[in-house]
Design a protein around this nucleic acid. Structure first.
Lengths: 351, 351
DNA sequence: TTGAAAGCGCTAACAT
DNA sequence: ATGTTAGCGCTTTCAA
């Protein structure tokens, strides 16, 4: 077994520059109390030797691991990956996360954790013990799992809760759910629609409720009724089919549906087509998520784009700078934009 | 700043079980020379205290970091993520990689590296110094970048080269390119096609050549000509449009096109539509990659599924078990399957 | 402003 | 079969 004599160490840099280890360490970490001249000398040794500190060693001695952990729900994520149906949640997390991490010399590690009660604590605890991350990013449904948040709080590990506004420890971030639902509904009203339904997500997800609130607020503002116009799904295709059928059966004068996920809205599109309804001539559709597939349906769906990359990036930024800046107390709402495509149009005149 | 007194250490386990650190270490690492009775005693202390060894400490003392690095081309990956056009290459790598890693107590870290000449060595060198991974997975075009392979070989870091059969260090894996192109062409011939074109990938990618070979081999076996039937693209949409136009202009009797990427094939579909050709009645299309979007085009495309997850999983398995098993000398070819959808059909009778 | 000493949590090498 | 010692590469603490 070959010795691991392949990396340059701080000792070699110190010798090369003719200074103590400590001085090199100070230069690496941008600490004060090093004369500029000395700093330059050390830096040039570092550059020449191509020295980069070992993360493991830094973690061992210091207090930081330079690791940020992003946790996703195992079951759902694996299902998405296996299905290959274009859900790019993880990609967008990586886009926002790894770029921001690397700006600060950090790495992001993606882990899958079961929400299932019994395992959670053991599983997360093991991961945290092994990796000792400097910060953890929680996504729904983990963001509101008390077993998880309690564990992290106890262990004194900074964390961000995406999609949660509940009180408690951790930085809270939302992705403009209420506002986007409000704006989308407003837009439909502006297009002349007055009977606007929503296929909401499951109520374990707080964001399902926020979207309903936004939709309801817009309706109320225009004096429109929301009665019998809200159905729940589970974000999946089949639940969308079911909800769309119920809504269309119940309201013959329905002219618009907002779906709380791409799959559910795509299902609604299919249901409409089955009933001979043309989109957007007879009925308008707005989706949530804006994953790749909505651009390829017929017609391409108007959709609220979830700013996942941006949100994760902000979360990382806060986690890394926690000690330097004042603690974040309020909820950070990253606004979401409606991308209009061809599934929205003026309300039909006759109805 | 709170002390990091939050994790259980090996010392506490040793005290709890009344044994030496070393014995605990032996139990953790499943080493011989521990009596079953002793092993049980230690294990129960481990379980009770919820002890999990620190990766950083293991790396510091031992020779392993329990980290596998997966390297992708920065420019291309970022473009895919920003475009959100459904390329799920990274997801599939994670699917295959993280699952297999975690089976062995490893983690996978995804890094983006510029192929661009000047930076590569510095960049990769820095990453490797910081992380000291036990293995690296290289994807095209890195797999055949001599600067990268040389560096890793020098540093004695085991690595896998996906999409490369070139001689040299590292485990070589391919994703059935030649075979899948051959099988796809055969299938078209079986459907009665005799004029079958290919839109190949750029020649910096070896796999572009392998696919051409498979296509050519099938044509030759049936005594069909390949003359003027191969055009190159760069895997992107525009290049597919251009190539498809050239092919259709050149051969009025063309009845089938194999595209070496989903984007190029989707472009070909569009070109066909523009010219009033119905797919698959007038012309059949087979794509390569099988990313999510091909299921949503009209008609859904028949496509060769790239077994990315499986290939990465195999690569990880080999990297982790390198010391235990004999070295891999030959190229590991993970076969790819043709998924038939609605873009392939019998050749038109008239032509 | 700089340096020396101690130790982070673990494993390799060497006892016993 | 088990324990002891040394040390991985770095930062913290303390001294100069």
């Amino acid at each position: 077994m070959a010795r691991r004599r392949n990396s340059v160490t701080i000792r070699e840099v110190a010798e090369d520059a003719g200074v103590s280890l400590q001085t090199v360490s100070r230069v690496i970490n941008d600490e004060p109390n090093v004369r500029p001249q000395m700093r330059d000398r050390v830096q040039s040794s570092i550059d020449r030797l191509g020295y980069v500190p070992s993360l493991a060693a830094q973690r061992m001695s210091g207090s930081r691991s330079y690791l940020i952990l992003a946790i996703n729900d195992r079951e759902r994520t694996l299902a998405d990956w296996r299905e290959r149906s274009g859900t790019d949640w993880v990609d967008q997390m990586l886009l926002g996360g790894t770029l921001t991490c690397s700006k600060h010399g950090y790495r992001m590690i993606v882990e899958l954790v079961d929400t299932h009660a019994d395992h959670v604590e053991r599983e997360l605890s093991a991961t945290v013990s092994a990796l000792q991350p400097d910060g953890v990013i929680l996504t729904p449904p983990h963001s509101e799992n008390p077993q998880i948040t309690r564990l992290l709080a106890q262990r004194n590990i900074p964390f961000a809760r995406i999609g949660s506004t509940e009180d408690g420890p951790g930085i809270r971030l939302t992705m403009g759910d209420e506002g986007a639902a409000y704006a989308s509904t407003k837009r439909l009203i502006e297009l002349g629609h007055s009977k606007i339904a929503i296929i909401a997500g499951p109520d374990q997800y707080s964001l399902s409720g926020w979207r309903i609130e936004g939709w309801r607020r817009a309706l109320a503002e225009s004096g429109l009724s929301d009665e019998g116009l809200c159905e729940r799904g589970d974000f999946g295709y089949d639940s969308g089919t079911k909800a769309a059928r119920i809504l269309l059966d119940r309201h013959s004068d329905l002219t618009a549906i907002i779906g709380s996920s791409d799959k559910m809205t795509l299902a609604a599109l299919e249901v409409a087509r089955d009933r001979g309804l043309h989109v957007p001539r007879d009925i308008s559709l707005i989706s949530f998520d804006n994953t790749p597939i909505v651009r390829f349906s017929q017609p391409p769906l108007s959709a609220v784009d979830q700013p996942i990359a941006e949100t994760v990036s902000i979360a990382v930024e806060h986690l890394i700078n926690l000690d330097k800046s004042p603690p974040v107390r309020n909820v950070i709402d990253v606004p979401a934009q409606l991308v209009e495509r061809s599934s929205t149009g003026p309300a039909p005149a006759s109805k």
